[in-house]
């Protein structure tokens, strides 16, 4: 007898569920605020004390044949109540929104601080991206160098006027602060066999007073390509391609120059973007903007690095991204790039 009391029949259970549903739906429809809806959710669907959950505990007591029908009915009832709760919650929220004072949508959004890369980094990254397309990887080297890597290996004759262009800062230990990134040419060629195609961004130092156009430390980007059969044609082609991509320059020109570590040596100019080549104050009436120095790597440099200079040839270039950044962003004084005024940096980072 106790058995029959504790074991509800399928009909009873279905009846109880239908009853609960009949009771719940009007209550939900009448609920006016989210708190009331939450109470109703707990009352009917709550995991431990919910009324429907209570019914579910009895499902297991049914004869096995009845359980699928009862389970389906239970699922339908909970789904119906849950759907009605969600529906009502949305309606209540909408009513609340309608009742609330309207948002002034012209008011500003909640901002976060904007960070940014340094303008020189931006230029380095863009230059690197273009050279990466052409198979270049990036090599780095130390900023404090030996005389040998900075000058001797790069074919600087001792005590030569060419050194006047490289006024050098020396360290107490006998090392020097590299005056260009070119020592990395030699370091790279010593460490890896040709073919070599690398780009070398890095700091370089000269004993220049800090003024509107000079700084004792500056960033240089060096490029180096060495292999059998690499010629002046490749130099011109690669750098012209770079100039077109980077500056959108229609025209470039290569004019003779001199660096101890390249021969033939050249400077590459691009058509002045201010005047389009007509000549203006920015380009000192030349119609051209000087961009980089370049040349065929001198055989003496290859020999310094232990590379067979008869078999291998190649080219190198060096450019100053600060100069490019100055032109791009109209920065009149190079010191701005070092001062780190956050207002300037933030404005340039946009």
């Amino acid at each position: 007898m106790t058995d029959t009391v504790n074991r509800p029949s399928l009909a009873e259970l279905l009846d109880r569920m239908a009853g609960l549903e009949r009771e719940a739906l009007p209550a939900i429809a009448a609920a006016a605020d989210p708190e009331e809806l939450e109470r109703l959710r707990i009352r009917y669907l709550g995991r431990t004390a919910g009324l429907l959950s209570g019914v579910s505990g009895s499902l297991g007591l049914l004869p096995a044949g009845d359980r699928p029908a009862a389970g389906a009915a239970f699922a339908r009832a909970t789904a119906a109540i849950r759907a009605r709760l969600d529906e009502r919650a949305a309606a209540v929220a909408a009513t609340r929104r309608a009742a609330a004072p309207p948002l002034d949508l012209t008011m500003p959004g909640r901002a976060v601080w904007q960070g940014g890369r340094h303008p020189v980094t931006v230029v380095i990254d863009e230059v690197a991206a273009i050279f990466r397309e052409l198979g270049f990887t990036i090599a780095l080297g130390p900023e404090a160098e030996s005389e040998w890597y900075n000058f001797t290996a790069l074919n600087f004759p001792p005590d030569h006027p060419a050194l006047d262009l490289h006024d050098t800062l020396y360290l107490e230990s006998g090392a020097l602060l590299r005056t260009h990134t070119s020592p990395v040419q030699v370091r790279t060629l010593q460490a890896y066999p040709p073919p070599v195609r690398v780009l070398v961004p890095g700091n370089a130092y000269r004993r220049d007073f800090f003024d509107a156009s000079h700084a004792p430390m500056f960033v240089q980007i060096e490029g180096l390509a060495i292999d059998e059969g690499v010629s002046f044609v490749d130099l011109k082609a690669t750098l012209t391609h770079f100039a077109r991509r980077f500056f959108g320059a229609a025209r470039t020109r290569f004019r003779p120059s001199f660096f101890p570590f390249t021969e033939p040596s050249a400077e590459m100019d691009v058509e002045c973007r201010i005047c389009g080549g007509a000549g203006c104050r920015t380009c000192k009436l030349t119609g051209w903007t000087e961009i980089l120095g370049c040349g065929m790597v001198h055989p003496a440099v290859l020999r310094s690095a232990g590379v067979d200079a008869e078999r291998y040839t190649g080219w190198a270039f060096g450019m100053g991204p600060a100069r490019v950044a100055q032109q791009r962003y109209d920065i009149p004084d190079i010191r701005e790039l070092y001062d780190s005024d956050v207002r300037v940096l933030a404005a340039l980072a946009r």
Partner: peptide, 16 residues
């Protein structure tokens, strides 16, 4: 220097 062409020629990838 103008007389030297500036055509991009094939190249080998570097080892670095």
């Amino acid at each position: 220097y103008d007389s030297v062409p500036d055509e991009l020629r094939p190249y080998r990838l570097g080892t670095v």
